[in-house]
Each structure stands twice: as C-alpha cells, then as structure tokens.
Amino acid sequence: MSDFVYQLRDVTKEYNGRRVLQVDGLDIRPGEIFALVGPSGAGKSTMLRLLNFLEHPTTGRIHFREAEFNPSRPMPLKLRRRVTTVFQSPLLLNRSVGANVSYGLRLRGRRNSGRRVEAALKEVGLKHMARQRARTLSGGEAQRVALARAIVLQPDVLLLDEPTANLDPYNVGLIEDIVQALNRQRQTTVVLVTHNVFQAKRLAHRVALLLEGQIVEASDVEMFFESPRDPRTAAFVRGEMVY
C-alpha cells in the first residue's frame, strides 16, 4: 500500500486574482482521520473542494493514488468517484430518503441497491425513514441522510466539511460515532474540516492548522494539542483569536 492517499505539492488557489490557499506540501495517509482546523475564511472548504476534485488548483499538483490532478489535468471519473464529501448544509434531492441514499449508486449504474441502502440507513439510525420525503426531515436527520448517501458508496476517502455545525449534541455524538466506526472498520480515510478544536481532538489522528490559506502546522493529535511547535497553533488551541 502506498504511504499516502493525497500528496499536495505547491498547490495554490486563487479567485479573481486573490490567493485564498497556498499549500507548499502536505501528505494525507491512508486510513487516518486528518482534521483541518482554522478560523472561518482560512481556506478549509476550498481545500476540501480541491481534494474532491470539484475545482482545479490555480497552480501546483495533487497526487491521488496513481493519478495527478493539476490546473489542466482533470481527475479520471473512476478515481473521482472514490472520494465524496458531506457538506455543512446538506442539500437533499426532492425525493424519498431511500432515493437520496441510492442516488450515488444509481449514478454508477447500480440499480438493485436496496440492501446497501438499507444497511447505510441502519448505520445512521434512519432505516425506518426510507420512504419519507427528504425535505420533511429535521436538520440533524438530513445531515445523517447526507452521511448515509456518502457511506453507501463505500468511498476510499470521506471528506467532511463542518458536518456537525449547528447540530444538537445528540446528533453531533451520533455522527462522530459513525465516522469513527467507518474509519476503524473499513479503514476509510477521513479528512475533517472543523473550527471546533475539541471535535478535532476527539476524532483525529493528525491535525493541521490552516491560517489565511497556509498550513501553519500539521502534526499528530497529541503533539498538536500538547506541545505545538508554532505559537499561533498554541494560541488557537487555547481558543485565542489568531487572525
């Protein structure tokens, strides 16, 4: 097995000439939960869009398995489909919960996916809601459906963009448990974007701090929280403003 899932080299992203991300080098290892923390506007979501190949970098290259993703070269569909994202605000299709969960499988031409859909819904505790219209769900239920529609695809990499922001503690705990189980049982690599340092501490194996589009520090979770190398990391961990 390769010693990285992603390898980012000299990656930048600009919008209208304004640089929002600059990552000189970053490796993400297979089977780890990698948390990306930082204040709002630091470039965390931009990073996830690049890791999901939804946008091209302005410069640099992202290696994913054997393929390279750069400003001009797209990621082959087969590999792109090994990665999926759960967004902060899930937008479900105006269909039943079951149809939403099976949607990604149908995109891949898999028609008879009833058992997998059922299993995914069971995993998030919503098996009894398969026939319900998705738009009638509460915020926490909708986020769990979004998680089910991602894990039913059995991705190699699961990207989570503030998945528990604005959720009640019950749903936060539930989603964190599901993510940890997925990582342990299927060795799914997870990249978690969060501004909640406590959540990063609870879930992650490694953590990186992103400030103004640049990675300040990336290290194992103990080192990140117990003995950070950079004073800005120490300040962020203490909950001080580091803008």
Binding site: L77, R80, T84, F87, P90, G104, L107, L153
Partner: peptide
C-alpha cells in the same frame, strides 16, 4: 457541487 461530489 453536492451532486458532483457524489460522482455525477
């Protein structure tokens, strides 16, 4: 974006 992230 969300549909594309599911592999569309």
């Amino acid at each position: 974006q969300q549909v594309r992230s599911l592999g569309a």
